[in-house]
Amino acid sequence: MPETGKTRVVVPERIQRGDVIRVQIVVQHPMDTGLFRDANAEIIPAYFINDVQIHYGDEQVAQFEWTTGISKDPLVSFQLRAEREALLTVTSKDNRGKEYRGSAEIKFATT
């Protein structure tokens, strides 16, 4: 049973201050286009994430506009400057108004 909206945020294990790190986001979501039919020939209504916000601590560092053109179980990765220790939070909203959240701690390696 898929858990719609389950969000994973993956960051490297060892981070040093100032590193440019790769952040990977995976959200479980059907991302239905509204153009396919099910086995009973009924239209499967459009159901997709349309807004994603990335916060690094309190600062909003990115915002993504998504459409049904993003594949099922969206996967996105991008680069972030790890300048401080803070929580990286991903908040996504779908077209039914549901909000999903996932986060990862940006922590610097001590050695």
């Binding site: 993003i70 972030l80 400057r81």
Partner: peptide, 18 residues
């Protein structure tokens, strides 16, 4: 299909998606 709005807090553009 999508728009990625970015700020200088991010590193150089290297976006992967499906």
């Amino acid at each position: 299909l999508t728009v990625f709005h970015m700020t200088p807090a991010l590193g150089p553009v290297a976006i992967q998606t499906r």
